Amino acid sequence: MSGLRFVDVCAGAGGLALGLEQAGFEPVLLLDNKPVACDTLRLNRPRWNVLEMDLLDFVPDEHPQTYDVDLLSAGLPRVKSSATVARAETNEEERLLEAAVLLTYSIQPRAMIIENVPGLVDAEAFEPLRDFVRKELEHLGYRLHWFVLNAADFGVPQDRKQGVLVALKERYYGSFRPPVPTVDEHVSVGGALRRSMGARGWSGADAWAAQAIGVAPTLVGGSDNRGGADLGPTGTKAAWARMGVNGGALADEAPGPEVHRYPGLIKLTDAQAALVQSFPADWLFAGRKTARYRQIGHASPPPVGKALGTAVADALRG
């Protein structure tokens, strides 16, 4: 089992897929329903087989290269709490998660990764959904690991907790170990962005970085039905303000020599938000500024994908 192959659904801007690639997996198909996300994938990896389609419409029989892959991965839209669902007309996110699970009937991967909200792992509100997942996958001979990871433990300068399901066929289950932290100390926002902040000659870059000593709050991509890009809800904006950042909007470029921060706050660019997600600096995002930021905010940080991919690869290789 030298070359490990995977299918990635709801691939978005490619954060999870990029991490899996770094762990030694090769994609046979990546699926997403957003044209701009598919453009991003093709822009960075022209050789990848990218399919623009809604997961609910995807028929594996029409794509036989997906059969019998090593891994099916899904960085799905965040499922909602029961209180939120009660106010919604439909629960599209839950339907997508169920659809991803049901793909195992056709694709029959050796392993599956689903990444979502931390509450999916153990919150009472999600017990019916976990029960559905458990029954469907155990029926096909998988055994399940549920756990929570924090991206900050893998070198991402962000407090971003992710609920993870790793399901493996019985023969590989006992060899799997959830990823362990790869850093002894968390990377600060200042440490991650100092060079970028000073790239246009802003004299305050070092002083700003010296006080931005914590990890960032979770980046929030927001809804396509909402206005312009910002860094998150009120509490998130307050956390950014304590690090000298205006979380209410994005800048078009890094601060230059003309900028005097105090008493004001600086704004991040979408490229700096991508660094907070630990995308490589050369990973490009298609679309206009708001569309770029939403892809970034919704993504799974590549270092987390790499850690998960490495753990699954180790189990599959015994």
Rank of each mutant, 00 (worst) to 15 (best):
F132A: 04
R160H: 08
D252W: 13
A315T: 07
G19A: 02
L51S: 06
H63F: 15
M1L: 10
P181W: 06
Y67N: 10
A313C: 04
A74S: 05
R177C: 07
N150I: 02
P181E: 09
Y142R: 07
K34A: 14
A274I: 02
D314R: 15
G190F: 00
A271Y: 09
L55I: 12
R226H: 12
F285W: 09
V156S: 08
Q211Y: 11
P27Q: 04
E93G: 10
N91E: 15
L120T: 03
K289S: 13
N246A: 14
N91L: 00
A315K: 00
Y142N: 02
P263V: 05
G244H: 09
V28T: 08
L20G: 01
V9T: 11
P233W: 04
R226N: 13
W283G: 05
D184V: 14
G119N: 01
W208N: 08
P302S: 04
P255H: 09
W202F: 06
L168T: 04
H186R: 15
R294D: 02
K169G: 08
P255N: 07
D270G: 01
L72V: 03
V79W: 01
A100I: 08
F58R: 04
S300E: 14
L250G: 02
G75E: 06
F279Y: 08
T90R: 15
S175Y: 05
Y262V: 11
S82Y: 12
F25I: 05
L43T: 08
L265P: 00
A100D: 11
